[in-house]
Simulated assay, not measured.
Amino acid sequence: MSRAVLSIGSNVGDSLAHLQSVVDGLGDSVVAVSAVYSTAPWGGVEQQDFLNAVLVVDDSALDGYGWLRRGQELETAADRVRTERWGPRTLDVDVVTCGDVRSDDPDLILPHPRAHERAFVLIPWLDVDPDAVLPVDGASTRVDALLALLDEDERAGVHRTELVLNRRSR
């Protein structure tokens, strides 16, 4: 089996519909869906807030590269254009982890190299897996402990919304 954690975000167009397109596009592979969060943009580029969520997905036919390809296909379907690093986007799908796989391949670094620094990943991840762990610098660390290490401003920029992503029943 290939269980992965995906972080999804959007701040261009109908952001909720873009996030829902990921849930719909992954179909029965979706095991769990976090709440939807409104989050301040990360990276210093002036833009509107994002909607973010985390999905836990599982498909024995996909490895980390398979999840990366699926995410990129969904981004393309949402007319994602890569013009500015950390800039606005219709859809962003990041593979945060894929089982215990570690990869230093520039095309797919696993676990995601900055996930432990991003409250918009950690907070929704805890929604779907309160006991989640993330390898950081070679040590598996609880996600809640990593979140506690972040600056208060980083954590305060992430707000749970009333918006819901609907998952197909398995």
Rank of each mutant, 00 (worst) to 15 (best):
G43N: 10
P130C: 08
A148Y: 00
G157W: 04
L19F: 11
N52K: 02
A119M: 07
R82F: 06
L51E: 05
P135C: 11
Q20W: 04
D94I: 07
R155K: 12
W67Q: 01
Q72H: 15
A77F: 01
Y65G: 12
W86H: 12
F50I: 03
V33W: 01
S169N: 10
Q20S: 06
S7A: 15
L55P: 07
D129N: 12
L150Q: 13
L51K: 03
A156Y: 02
L6S: 01
S21R: 04
V22E: 08
G13W: 03
A40D: 14
P111R: 08
S2L: 05
W125D: 06
T76A: 15
A40G: 09
D14H: 13
E73A: 11
V93D: 05
D107G: 11
V56A: 10
M1G: 14
L19P: 02
G27V: 06
A115T: 02
T76F: 11
R89E: 11
V95S: 06
D28L: 14
D137K: 08
L51A: 02
T83Y: 00
G157K: 09
G71P: 07
E73P: 04
G44A: 06
V57A: 11
E84Y: 04
R167Q: 13
G66N: 11
V136G: 07
L149N: 13
P88E: 11
N11F: 09
S38F: 00
L68N: 00
V45G: 01
D107M: 13
R167V: 01
A119V: 04
A17C: 00
V33T: 14
G157V: 06
V54G: 00
Q48D: 13
D100I: 06
R3F: 00
D94F: 05
E152D: 15
R89N: 09
A78H: 01
V30S: 07
G87N: 03
L74A: 06
A61V: 05
R89F: 02
S38H: 10
S34G: 12
S29R: 09
Q48C: 09
D104F: 02
R69F: 06
D151A: 14
V54L: 04
D105H: 15
R170P: 13
E154W: 02
D59P: 04
R167N: 04
V133C: 09
V12S: 07
L146F: 05
E84V: 15
G9Y: 02
T76K: 14
D100S: 15
S103Y: 01
L146H: 01
V57G: 00
L51W: 09
A35T: 03
D49G: 08
D92Q: 12
